[in-house]
């Protein structure tokens, strides 16, 4: 049995890293907003979903124009990523302005409820537009990268099976890593990043130090949502088919990743995302085998939730967070 598990390791690693990269970038969005406002932005999964739809729409339009479709796929992807990121960034800013800012001093239950409302609203608006334009809300985008690569893992050691990867895997991973490094540099090296960290530490004191708190919060939402939207495009490119309800479960898992890494901690979120992606792929590949057929791969979502609940119960500060005590 152990050997069989080992056989699947190369494929699990590749799929897990792809999925993990997606989780990681979305988890950053949750963690940034939580770090600054102590608010779970429930609508973040839906921003990711909107990004996937906006990106697919732009791709469909672009591939329809003759001279554009002859451009190399990678140029097109970069263009789509940038446009989608800007659009979803503004979407996130708008949501903050309309639904969260008026409630900043309200009890914590209330903004959570508006967040759920926003996420339902976005789901239905996207469904509505997709159904109106395409006749069906499940949309399949154009496939940009169809080339398959095969990794001869069996030549390294005979216990491994060969793994196949799509070219898009490389692109998803590289883009996600670039986004994460870029964000890390932005937060730790620039003036605005410093302002963000200051606001996260103490909003009132930061405002006394001539930091425009509202602006910083807006920028945080912009960056988090832009990253989420861009990941949506990557998701659509990697997995092909999207529907308006992908954002919910994926957002929840990304939130799990954020909690796993320690909420509020950006590097923790990246690590948590990758870890969760690997764990989940491992579970879906081997759960049937390890439990002798009692639990099938359908339980992989349960698996993610159980990780979340266990982390919240036994190490609520996450792997890299610092425990906080509540004071009166």
């Amino acid at each position: 049995m152990f050997n069989e598990v080992l056989h699947t390791i190369p494929q699990v690693l590749i799929d897990g890293l792809t999925l993990g990269a997606v989780y990681a970038v979305i988890a950053i969005g949750y963690t940034m907003v939580y770090g600054i406002l102590e608010l779970i932005n429930f609508a973040h999964g839906e921003i990711f979903m909107s990004g996937a739809f906006i990106g697919t729409a732009i791709l469909l339009v672009l591939t329809g124009i003759g001279w554009v479709s002859s451009l190399p796929a990678i140029v097109m992807l970069i263009a789509v990523l940038l446009i989608t990121a800007v659009l979803t960034g503004f979407l996130g800013m708008g949501i903050e302005r309309v639904a969260y800012r008026p409630l900043r001093n309200a009890p914590r239950l209330i903004p959570l409820i508006t967040a759920i409302g926003i996420s339902f609203l976005l789901q239905d608006i996207v469904r509505f537009i997709a159904e109106l334009k395409k006749g069906n809300y499940i949309v399949t985008g154009p496939s940009l990268f169809t080339h398959q690569l095969s990794i001869k893992a069996s030549s390294v050691s005979s216990i491994f099976n060969d793994a196949t990867i799509k070219t898009s895997f490389v692109i998803v991973l590289v883009t996600a890593v670039i986004m994460m490094i870029g964000l890390d540099l932005f937060v730790n090296r620039t003036k605005w990043g410093m302002a963000m960290r200051a606001v996260a530490q103490d909003r009132e004191t930061a405002s006394l130090m001539t930091i425009n708190v509202n602006k910083v919060i807006s920028i945080t939402f912009f960056i988090g949502s832009a990253l989420g939207g861009a990941t949506g495009v990557l998701f659509a490119v990697q997995y092909g088919t999207i529907d308006p309800y992908i954002g919910f479960i994926l957002g929840l898992k990304a939130f799990t990743a954020a909690v796993l890494g320690g909420i509020g901690n950006i590097r923790g979120a990246m690590f948590g995302g990758l870890l969760l992606g690997l764990l989940e792929m491992f579970a879906s590949a081997n759960l049937t085998l390890l439990s002798h057929g009692i639990f099938g791969a359908e339980y992989k979502d349960v698996f993610a939730f159980i990780i979340l609940i266990l982390v919240l119960l036994f190490k609520p500060e996450g792997l890299f967070g610092k425990p906080v005590t509540e004071k009166v």
């Binding site: 639904a99 409630l103 209330i110 903004p111 409820i113 508006t114 759920i116 409302g117 926003i118 996420s119 339902f120 609203l121 976005l122 789901q123 239905d124 608006i125 469904r127 509505f128 159904e131 109106l132």
Partner: peptide, 20 residues
């Protein structure tokens, strides 16, 4: 796509936001 019986989520979402 516009048929109101499919709009449940939108109506619920709007109600939640407006009331909150």
């Amino acid at each position: 796509a516009l048929s109101p019986s499919k709009m449940q989520r939108m109506i619920f979402g709007l109600l939640l936001i407006l009331f909150a």
